[in-house]
């Protein structure tokens, strides 16, 4: 019970942090920010690996392995595509200087 409460506290505090960190972002960065946040929720991979490594029968094993594939695509693909978007901003800064 107290463990559940601790997890709930973490959740509530994280909500406020999430609101704060993106409070003032320019429209220019909306797309990369969405894409970056998208990559971050690929961290469900950690959960997928955890359930896969505890799976004993067939159905849970198959489902959790499938989850690992999907989560990896989300996470790795997400970070790569965000980096590609942001790569283009770098060239611009050189030009300004």
């Amino acid at each position: 019970m107290s463990n559940g409460l601790a997890l709930l506290s973490i959740f509530v505090l994280a909500v406020f942090v999430g609101f704060e960190v993106v409070a003032k972002v320019s429209t220019t960065l909306h797309t990369p920010l969405m894409s970056g946040a998208n990559a971050i929720h690929g961290i469900i991979l950690v959960g997928a690996i955890e359930v896969a490594s505890n799976a004993t029968s067939n159905l849970p094993t198959v489902l959790s392995i499938l989850a690992i594939v999907l989560a990896t695509i989300n996470m790795v693909g997400g970070f790569v595509v965000t980096d590609r978007m942001l790569e283009m901003f770098k060239g611009k800064k050189k030009e300004v200087k």
């Binding site: 463990n3 559940g4 997890l7 973490i10 959740f11 994280a14 909500v15 406020f16 942090v17 999430g18 609101f19 960190v21 993106v22 409070a23 972002v25 909306h30 920010l33 969405m34 946040a37 998208n38 971050i40 929720h41 961290i43 469900i44 950690v46 959960g47 955890e50 359930v51």
Partner: peptide, 22 residues
Amino acid sequence: YVLQATLLIVAGTLVGASGTIL
């Protein structure tokens, strides 16, 4: 929460909250 994994709660909530603002 189901897995009792703090990292998932923090990361997921951050995305949920910032995504809502966005």
